[in-house]
Design a binder for these strands. Structure first.
Lengths: 178, 178
DNA sequence: GGTATCTATATCGTTTCGATATATTCTACA
DNA sequence: TGTAGAATATATCGAAACGATATAGATACC
C-alpha cells in the first residue's frame, strides 16, 4: 500500500485538497501511516495523470486557491483492487526506544528527562485523541481510532511501569566499560 | 537517527558483519526500526570511509567469506553525540489497519479472514518473542524487548475485543453507497 | 536428484523523506 | 499599530531508504 493508494482511499471519504489530505495523515492516519508533502503532491499528480482522480481548481475568499481532488470510478476500482492485496507485516520506527536501548551509555539524568518528556507528550496526545473520538464515520474508522488509543495507552503504561529498568542502572553504572 | 547511526549502535554490542546486523534488525530491533540490505551495506561502506568503523575480511569454513565490522573510538564518540539528539515522534506503518479502515468496502468474509490471519501471526510472533527473552544484555535491551512484547499483547487484545466492529458492519451493509 | 533455506555481499531503479521556497491571511501580543 | 507566529496552500529537490534482484556455495529435507 503506497501513498497513491492511501490518497485514493482518503478520497473515498470525500473530495479533498492535497493540504487536507496531509491533515488526515497527521490526524486519524497518524498511527498507521505517514506521508509528507513531498510524497503527497507527486502522488496526486500521478493519480490525475492516470485518470484515477480529477482535479478542480477552486478560488477561495481570504485563503489561497486550492486544488480539490475527486476520485473517479476507475479510481474506486483501482482502490478496491489494492485493498484485496495481502498486507505486509506492520512496521514501527521509534528513535525514543532506540536511544533507550543504549541507556547505559547516557547520563542518568538525561535518561530520566527523556522518559519524562515522552510520557508528557504521550499523555497530551492521548487526551487529544480522546477528545477527537469519532461518533460518525465508518466502523473501520472508529476501529482504527480505538486501536490508536489502545496502543498509546499500552505504551504509556509500559514506560511508567518499567522506567526504573533504564533509570536505576544508569545511576549505578554511569560508564560501564562496554 | 539514521541507519548509519543504528549500525554504529549495534556495533557497540560487539563486532558484526552486514548480514549479522540485518539479523539484529529482524530480531531485537524489529519493533523500533527496520532496514534492508539496500540501506545497511551502503551505510557500512560510508562508515568505513568516514573512519567510524573498520572492516576485516574473514575467511570461513563451509561458508562464504564475511566482512566483520568493528567500531572505532571516533565511531563511539559519533554515536554518543547522536544519542544526545532529541528523538522525533514515533512512527508506525500498518497496512492491516489501513485496510480495515475501509472494511465496509470489502466482503465480510474477506475481513474475517484478514483478522484471523493477523491474530494467528501475531500470537506466533509473540510466543517467539517470549522464548527469546534476553536474560543477559544491557537493561536497555531488556526494556526494549519488554516494550515490544507489551505492544504486541495490546494489539492482539484490542483486535480480539473489537473485531466485531468491522465484522458485523460488513455483514449488515456489504455495499454501502459511499 | 531436486528444491528450499541459510549464509553472505552487492547493486539499482523507484519511492519516500525532509528541508526549503513562496505567498497570503489570521491571530495574539506588546 | 506593528509584528511575529501560526495556519492555509502548493511545489520542488537532493538525500535516504526501500524492495527487488543477482550471485554463489552449503546444508537439509523429501
Amino acid at each position: 500500500m503506497d501513498i497513491k493508494t492511501l490518497c485514493l482511499g482518503l478520497l473515498t471519504f470525500g473530495d479533498a485538497s492535497g493540504y487536507e489530505i496531509k491533515k488526515s495523515f497527521e490526524g486519524e492516519l497518524r498511527h498507521f501511516y505517514e506521508a509528507s508533502f513531498g510524497s503527497i503532491y507527486p502522488a496526486l499528480m500521478r493519480l490525475t495523470k492516470d485518470g484515477l482522480v480529477t482535479c478542480t481548481e477552486q478560488a477561495q475568499v481570504n485563503r489561497p486557491d486550492k486544488k480539490v481532488y475527486r476520485i473517479t470510478p476507475a479510481g474506486r476500482m483501482a482502490f478496491l483492487d489494492a485493498l484485496q492485496q495481502k498486507p505486509p507485516h506492520d512496521r514501527a520506527r521509534s528513535d525514543f526506544m532506540a536511544i533507550l536501548m543504549f541507556a547505559d551509555l547516557l547520563p542518568a539524568r538525561h535518561v530520566s528527562d527523556l522518559v519524562d518528556e515522552r510520557l508528557a507528550s504521550g499523555r497530551k496526545h492521548l487526551a487529544d485523541m480522546r477528545r477527537r473520538t469519532p461518533r460518525g464515520g465508518s466502523p473501520g474508522r472508529r476501529f482504527a481510532h480505538g486501536y490508536g488509543v489502545a496502543m498509546l495507552e499500552a505504551a504509556i503504561a509500559y514506560i511508567e511501569e518499567n522506567r526504573h529498568l533504564v533509570e536505576s542502572e544508569a545511576l549505578l553504572a554511569p560508564a560501564s566499560g562496554r
